[in-house]
């Protein structure tokens, strides 16, 4: 890998790791379901950017773009279904506390 590409890889990798840590921390610490979903979105965003970066550095952007489009489609479905679960939990428990999910049955 040439020096310029290596420099770009290191710079992006540094911020991607920080974004990943923020998302993970948000998921672990927050008790609000919507905030946990937002943390998951941040994790997916970090991984997406990493894949695009790897495609750019290795010169295979077409393959990584195809994969990233798949990830984005799955991401939106996950977000929508998780939002629906959050709404159901809210209607049942009257709050968005993630611990209330234990009470959902059937």
């Amino acid at each position: 890998m040439s020096g310029d590409y290596w420099q770009i890889f290191l710079t992006f990798g540094f911020f991607i790791i920080l974004t990943f840590v923020c998302g993970l921390y948000c998921m672990l610490v927050s008790r609000n379901i919507i905030r946990a979903i937002i943390g998951l979105e941040l994790l997916i965003k970090a991984v997406t950017l990493l894949m695009i970066l790897v495609g750019y550095v290795s010169g295979r952007t077409s393959v990584t773009q195809a994969m990233v489009i798949t990830i984005i489609v799955i991401e939106v479905v996950v977000a929508v279904v998780a939002g629906g679960i959050a709404l159901r939990s809210f209607r049942y428990n009257d709050n968005l506390d993630i611990r209330g999910l234990k009470r959902l049955k059937g």
Partner: peptide
């Protein structure tokens, strides 16, 4: 950033969907 990394199609998807 995706546009700058030569991935315009993924960038358009990211913008419209995410």
């Amino acid at each position: 950033l995706m546009f700058r990394l030569n991935s315009p199609l993924a960038a358009v998807f990211e913008l419209s969907v995410c």
